[in-house]
Amino acid sequence: MSRIEINAAVMFADICGSTHLYERLGDGTAHHLVSNLIKLVDSLIEKHNGRVVKHIGDEVLAVFEKLENAASCAIHIHKLSEDEKALSSLQMKIGIRFGAVFLENSDVFGDTVNTAARIVSMATPGQTLVGAEISGIELKSGAIRSIGLHKLKGKKNVVEIYELLGAQPKGLTTCVAPSRKNRRKERVLRLCFADTEIEMVVGQKIIIGRDEQNALRIDHHLVSREHAEVEGVRDRFVLRDISTNGLTVLASDGREYALHREGITLVGNGEIHLGTQSASSSDVPIVRFVNAER
C-alpha cells in the first residue's frame, strides 16, 4: 500500500488502573476485564465511524474522518466505566488531535499522531483532552473548556489544549472557546544568570543545577547537580528546591523566602540565591527572574 496523506482526528485511549487490578484480582481475571474493555472501546470506535489502527499494550490508537465523531466517541467511552459495574475500577484517559496524517500499511504516522500521544499523557483518568481545533466545530453533545497554553515535549511552540466535557448537569455553565481578540496574552518567565537568559512558558519545566544537561547550568561548589526545578503550571510559575543546601528567594519588595525541599510561586520580579538560606550570603550564584507577558 502506498503512503496516503489525509486529514483525520487521531485518538489515543489509554486504560488507567490496570496495574492495581492485576495485583488485586490476579492475572487471569484482570486480563479478562481489560480485554473486555478494549473490545467495547473498539466497538464504540467503529459505531462512531472510526477505525482502530492498533493496540499498544492497554492503549488503543484510532483515526476518525471527522473530529465530531471522535469527540462523541470519547464521551461514550467514558460512560463504559459508569454503565458496566464490572469495569468500575478501570477508567480511560483520552487524547485527540486533528490534522494531516500519513496512512501506510494499515498504520498511521505524522506530527498529528505524535501530538495526540503527548496530549493523552497530560490527561487524568476519566478525562479527554483535545487540541485547539475543537473550538471551531459544533459538538452534538458535551461542551469544552480551555485549560490554557501548554509546552508539549518535543514541540517548539506552545499548544492550546481543551478539555472535552460530557453531559452537562443543570446549572453548570457551558464553557465556550475564548475569541482570539479577547484571549489573554501568553505568560512567560525569564531567568537570567551571568550571560545566559532563558525564557519559559506555561506547561514547560526546566532544571537549574550543576549538570551539563540542565537547561540552566550553574557550576558552583554550593550548587547541587540538580538544585531546583521551575515549572509553568496553569497561569503561574512554581520554583521547587530539590538540593542539598537549599536556596533563598528575594522578592522585589525585599522579603526573603528560604526554601529547602519546598516550593514557592514566583511572583513579579526577584532573585533566586542558590545554596544559601539567606539572601545576605556572599559568594553565592544569583538567578534573576522576571514575570512577563507576550
Rank of each mutant, 00 (worst) to 15 (best):
Q127L: 03
P125A: 01
I119N: 03
M92G: 06
Q91T: 03
V113D: 04
A62M: 10
N157Q: 11
G166Q: 04
E65H: 10
E65L: 08
G131V: 08
K140Q: 14
H48G: 04
S35M: 11
L37K: 09
V113S: 07
K54N: 11
D58H: 07
K47L: 15
I56P: 06
I134F: 02
D42R: 00
V34Q: 00
S141V: 10
I119Q: 07
A70S: 15
G95E: 11
S121E: 11
D42F: 00
E160W: 02
D58N: 04
N36E: 12
T173G: 03
L87I: 05
N157P: 02
Q127T: 02
T115I: 14
G99K: 07
G131M: 11
L164D: 00
L67H: 08
V53N: 03
L129A: 07
L90K: 01
F64V: 08
K93T: 03
A132P: 12
E59D: 13
V34C: 13
L152R: 00
E133L: 11
V34W: 14
L103V: 10
K54Q: 11
N36K: 13
A117P: 11
I96Y: 01
L37S: 12
G154W: 11
A86K: 14
K39W: 04
S72E: 14
L139G: 09
G136Q: 13
Q127M: 09
A74F: 08
I161K: 07
S141D: 15
H48R: 09
S72K: 15
G126W: 03
D58Q: 07
S43P: 08
A132V: 06
A116L: 08
F98Y: 15
G142T: 01
K47C: 14
G154C: 05
H55F: 15
G57V: 09
N69V: 06
H55R: 13
Y162S: 03
Q91F: 05
A116Y: 07
M122H: 07
A30I: 10
G95Q: 08
S35F: 10
E104M: 13
S121W: 02
S135N: 14
R118A: 07
R97T: 10
V113A: 06
I77W: 00
F102L: 12
N36D: 12
V101E: 03
A143N: 06
S135L: 06
